[in-house]
Amino acid sequence: MSDTYVQLTDLTLTYGQSVAVPELNLGIREGELIALLGPSGCGKTTTMRAIAGLLAPASGRITIDGRDVTRVPANKRGIGLVFQSYALFPHLNAFENVAFGLRLQKLSANEITERTLQGLATVGLTGYDKRKPAEMSGGQQQRLALARSLVMQPKVLLLDEPLSNLDARLRLEMRTELQRVQKETGVTMVFVTHDQAEALALADRIVLMKEGRIEQLGTPADLYARPETAFAAEFMGFENIFRVEGGKVVSDKGTLPLGFATTSPLLAWRPDGVTVGSGPHEGRVVATSFAGAHREYVLESALGPIKADADIALPRVEIGETLTFDLPEATARPLAA
């Protein structure tokens, strides 16, 4: 991997006696936007803090641009971090927040002013320089935090749950904003999230983590279409996951015959991969909701609950009535045990 920019080698991270991340190996390419995705406690934030230098690894190495920075303290590492809480300085106005790091570098007053105003402009906060953080909206505060990190021209920019504190409309806006900033500055970005939609929409590559280990690494398209494990499949929206035993689909509740041959021990279907309104199986509707382009059903079948999306053109079936369905080969995703 010649184009690896940040390399984590056998990185072990601990909190006291408990190991949060055991022997992690990960290469991050220059200029890419990579997401560390996983549920809380999967080690994604811990890994990010270790890259920033806020957490000293128990063992292993971190290299950035070919240089070993494992023992370089956080304030000399040249890495930016946008905190989930933004961590703005409440006693300083927007200009001084952005200028904070530049002032520490003892640059000339002209250069500080120029770069600070440029930084504010990059995130669309021109004219807000006199405002205190408390006088700004959540979205503006976040862009201010982003500008404060960006003006330092960091080698790597880390973002902790960058969209989680924003409402739905701002989220979309910020997503575009992050992609634009990344394209303009070319900075390598690593962001941490528990939201798979966020990761899929933003990242060039996704690192799916579970219990401190990489469960799967790939492009959003890869992960979305071809999850390799039950954990990855569940995270990517395959809500129906069943075992395969002797030509049958098996769950803890019961079995159904499988209409095709497979060698996989596990098969998974998304709700929209389940055929509704025709097929060999039957299920009783226990819940239904309208979701715009389709109607969502929960069917109580021999396998237990099946989540299925029906075309909106099909007539609505009430709770308590029976629907036929199929688990077709075409939409089945084989998984490793």
Partner: peptide, 8 residues
Amino acid sequence: EAAVLLGC
């Protein structure tokens, strides 16, 4: 921590 990452 933010201040430290900015060079403090």
